[in-house]
């Protein structure tokens, strides 16, 4: 067994042990962890933002900065791809 294969096997075993213990410590299915922020958002989402869809109101209103970052990432990716392939086209 070469040194690279040995390193791969050791890495795989470490990840497998981590996954095994995290599977042992998981919540039961369908019972999410208790969080205060959920109750606040579910209680106030229709009065504060006026939407019936809570997920969109969280994405665009409560956590607007995340969506701004996501839009910036998409813009940068498109700009990079167009820059590379316009050079390659000529």
């Amino acid at each position: 067994m070469s040194k690279r294969n040995f390193a791969a096997v050791v890495f795989f075993l470490v990840i497998a042990v981590f996954f095994f213990f995290s599977a042992l410590m998981m919540h039961p299915f369908g019972v999410p962890e208790k969080a205060d922020m959920d109750d606040e958002i579910i209680k106030g989402v229709q009065i504060e933002t006026g939407t019936n869809n809570g997920v969109t109101s969280v994405v665009f209103d409560y956590r607007g900065f995340d969506t701004l970052g996501e839009a910036t990432i998409l813009f940068t990716a498109v700009a990079g791809v167009i820059m590379v392939f316009r050079r390659l086209k000529q």
């Binding site: 933002t49 109101s57 665009f60 791809v81 167009i82």
Partner: peptide, 22 residues
């Protein structure tokens, strides 16, 4: 919904144009 539908339209135009341009 206030400003949320307008933001949906803006992000929708952006995503359509960006992904199709790639």
């Amino acid at each position: 919904g206030g400003v949320i539908p307008l933001m949906n339209f803006a992000v929708g135009i952006k995503v359509i144009a960006g992904l199709f341009a790639i």
